[in-house]
Structure formats: C-alpha cells, structure tokens
Design a protein around this nucleic acid. Sequence first.
DNA 1: GTTGACGTTTACGTTAACGTAAACGTCAAT
DNA 2: ATTGACGTTTACGTTAACGTAAACGTCAAC
Lengths: 129, 129
Amino acid sequence: MSTTADSYSISELAQEFGITTRTIRFYEDKGLLTPQRRGQTRVYTPEDRVRLKLILRGKRLGFSLDESREIIDMYDPAHGNVDQLNRLLDRIDAKRQQLRQQQRDIEKMLAQLDEATARTEVALKEHND
Amino acid sequence: MSTTADSYSISELAQEFGITTRTIRFYEDKGLLTPQRRGQTRVYTPEDRVRLKLILRGKRLGFSLDESREIIDMYDPAHGNVDQLNRLLDRIDAKRQQLRQQQRDIEKMLAQLDEATARTEVALKEHND
DNA sequence: GTTGACGTTTACGTTAACGTAAACGTCAAT
DNA sequence: ATTGACGTTTACGTTAACGTAAACGTCAAC
C-alpha cells in the first residue's frame, strides 16, 4: 500500500499548489507540461507533478517560464554530441553563478531587514514616553 | 580627497548598472526615485544611487517594483503610530519569511544543478568509447 | 553653423503570464 | 430532466516593465 498517487487531475494539482487550472493549461501551452489524455481530459503523472513543482520553484525565484524550462531540461537525459554537452555544462554553470548571486542578494536584504526591525523597535520604545 | 562622488548624471548611473536611461526615468515615474533638477536636467545624489541599487537587487530576486519600494520604505525613518509600527514589523517579518523560502529554493536548485552536471559529465565520458 | 553627445517630454508598442468570460460536453446526484 | 461539479476549447482583456521612436533643447567642438 503506497501513499504515492500515480495520477492527478488538473484541479487536484491546482489545489495542491494554490494555482488555477488556467495556469496549468497555460504551462502546457508553453510546452512545460505534456500530460496524457483520458479521452479529452488531462491526466497528470507524478513526473508531471514534479515538473510543475520545479516551475513554481523557479517562479518564486523570479525565473521566467523559459528559464524554468531550461533548468528542467538540464536535468533530463543528456542528449547530443560532445559540443552540445559542453555547452550544456556552461549553461549549468551560468545558472549556478546566478543562484549564487541571488544568495548574496538575499543575505544583504536579510541584514537590511534586521536593521529595519531594530529601527522600528526603537521607534516603538520611544512611543512609551 | 574623497573617492565618493556627490552627484551623478542619469547616463552615469545607467552605465554603471547596465540599464538604460529609460529605465531610470521609468523608476522615477513610479515614484521609486526622486532626483533633483539642475534646470531641467536630473541630478542624482549618492542616496538616489543606493536606492537604485536596492531596486536592482530586488529585481534579481524577482521582486516587482512595488515590492522593492516596500522594502526600501521599510528601511527609512519609521513614521507613524504604534499600530502602524506594529504592522510594519509584521510586513518585515513576512519579507523575511519569503527570503528564507527563496534560500531553500536556491539550495534545492543548486543541488539539482550538481546532479545535472554529474549526469552530463557521465554522458561526456561515455562519448570516449 | 552644423555636427555630436547629452539631456528632455510625450506617446505608442511589446512581451510575459496569466485572468476572465463564453459556450460547450460529461457524468453522478437529486 | 435539471442541477452541480468537473472538464474542455477559444478568445479577448489586463498588468508590469520597460523598448522604441519622434521632436525638441543645450552646449562644446570642429
């Protein structure tokens, strides 16, 4: 008895991730998802679900759908000649650099927020006079 | 002899940050920057430059201009009554949560990229047969 | 005196990522 | 047999964040 469902409806996914079915269909339109069909109805596999998860993760990081697609494609079976594989390695590295930059940006912003909190708390204390 | 300029032209800032003057004027239109004028020409102070820096940092993290504005406003002199200050603390905390989520997302993506690199290198080795 | 580099305003155009609505099919429940 | 929950397609609308172009002013340089 496994706890992993092996298929999902569009509304199940929509609810789980807090998005609309319109959004999911839109992602399909853009080629980010390719669910199967039971008749006319879309049926999503666990792999589809993972891809959706990756897309939304990208979104939270401010990635465009094209960027998310690129990242997802990086993960799947490496296809192509030596030249293409090397270019892939370069693109992966570029993304790594970008993510590291984001890490630095977050650190600075968090520090900034700490200062903001401190200032605000001071202002609050001054209200007690 | 200080190395800190005390004013910048619009094209200086544009070049330094790799954006267009159109973008800078757009930010002003949206109320994110309020440079002074020498006649009709915009003159930017170091503070303006910092604000611009913060905006672009936000951009790299996928923040909208409104979100960046909010963050910037969090930093400046706390104005308002106790109620407003408390709501400010809440908003600061919410941003902190969001940034922490982004940190987690980045960690996972970096791990994913490491896997991708490994897979690709394997595929490259297999080309040497 | 005109060319070039820089600045300005005004305004229409563009792209991404959906929202929203219409019009319809399907199937279980009342 | 109709209501309701779910699914579908098609298509027009919307917002953010600029790009692009036109039309103009200013000032130093040739």
